[in-house]
């Protein structure tokens, strides 16, 4: 087993071995989560603070549940509505929390790089729950776990990532992870929603959905992030749905056993047809949510082990 990181800030800094380590451990937590008694004590006595500068229901609930099932004391700070509004800076908020000696800090922030900045100022383990348009590592890991369980492997697959790529941290983290695991990646988006220079990342770019989906094993849809747009990326939702919304006709171009994924929350009738989303033979969207809890448990477990080892080493130094 190999996992050395102090924080989980992004997929960028993980090695393929570390990714496999997380996924293997997460598989075990999936089993635990399906039992009636879901308790573990690997985080017993540890404090986990969820600090969400952006509103979130799903991710925050998933992290909260993951921490509680591992026996941590979990606290949710809805920072979006507190001292930040009174003018306190991100660093001050972080320092204040740091003084309360948390062990795990789960952070979501609207600015790219904000979680990296915060991690440099605190002495606990920081988990990035999404920063701006940068990374959302646990989402990419839970997607990888879902794919691995559905397809039996996470290598040599053709994966299409479709939709609002420009505004998506999920797309960036997935792009990096799937690339590290040696998959063939296709990005499908209207050119206005395709980030600049992304062709240099070693993926294939399409602005035609049918051509892009041809022969894919996995179809990842992204949410159209209306709240991050400053206007005029697409002519209308109905034209977007017509050209880029996943429906049965377009999905027919992918492999017959291709799975459909979506990080949620979905805009039905905008990027995905409701019937496809609910099709239990194709859609793994509910599995993604289930894997989310397990992957977050695995990440926190591994970070906590490193934290204990580091503190143990320090204590040993003091004794000498």
């Amino acid at each position: 087993m190999s996992f050395r990181a102090r924080h989980l800030l992004g997929i960028e800094h993980l090695s393929p071995q570390e990714i496999v380590t997380i996924l293997d451990l997460a598989d075990r937590y999936v089993d635990l989560n399906r039992r009636t008694v879901k308790q573990s004590d690997v985080l017993a006595g540890m404090t986990q603070i969820n600090m969400f500068f952006e509103n979130s229901t799903r991710t925050q609930a998933s992290f909260e549940l993951a921490g509680k099932r591992l026996g941590a004391d979990v606290m949710n700070m809805s920072v979006a509505s507190s001292s930040v509004k009174k003018g306190e800076t991100l660093i001050d908020t972080a320092m204040t929390l740091n003084a309360m000696h948390p062990d795990l800090l789960v952070v979501r922030h609207g600015a790219s790089g904000a979680v990296n900045l915060l991690a440099s100022k605190v002495n606990c383990a920081v988990l990035n729950a999404g920063d701006g348009r940068h990374e959302h590592p646990t989402q990419a890991l839970l997607d990888a776990l879902t794919i691995r369980r559905a397809k039996g492997r996470i290598q040599r697959l053709t994966v299409a990532i479709c939709g609002d790529i420009a505004h998506s941290r999920v797309a960036r983290s997935n792009l990096i992870l799937l690339g590290k695991m040696e998959n063939r990646i296709r990005l499908i988006a209207p050119p206005t929603l395709m980030p600049a220079g992304v062709g240099e990342f070693g993926c294939e770019l399409y602005d035609d959905m049918k051509a892009g989906l041809e022969g894919c094993d996995v179809v990842m849809m992204l949410r159209l992030q209306k709240e991050r747009m400053d206007g005029g990326f697409i002519p209308s939702e109905r034209e977007y749905y017509h050209r880029y919304g996943l429906d049965a006709e377009k999905l027919a171009y992918a492999k017959p056993d291709a799975i459909v994924m979506h990080p949620g929350p979905m805009n039905r009738g905008v990027e995905i047809d409701g019937e496809i989303a609910d099709d239990i033979n194709r859609s793994v969207i509910q599995e993604q949510v289930e894997m989310g809890v397990a992957v977050r448990m695995a990440c926190m477990d591994l970070l906590a082990r490193n934290l204990r080892a580091e503190r143990g080493a320090k204590a040993a130094e003091v004794m000498v």
């Binding site: 790219s112 790089g113 920063d131 701006g132 348009r133 940068h134 980030p195 220079g197 992304v198 400053d230």
Partner: peptide
């Protein structure tokens, strides 16, 4: 260039920063 923090391209895309051409 409104709202841009970096030059658009591979680097700004990787870092998720709003870029200007």
């Amino acid at each position: 260039s409104a709202g841009a923090a970096a030059t658009s391209g591979k680097f700004s895309s990787l870092r998720g920063l709003p870029g200007v051409s």
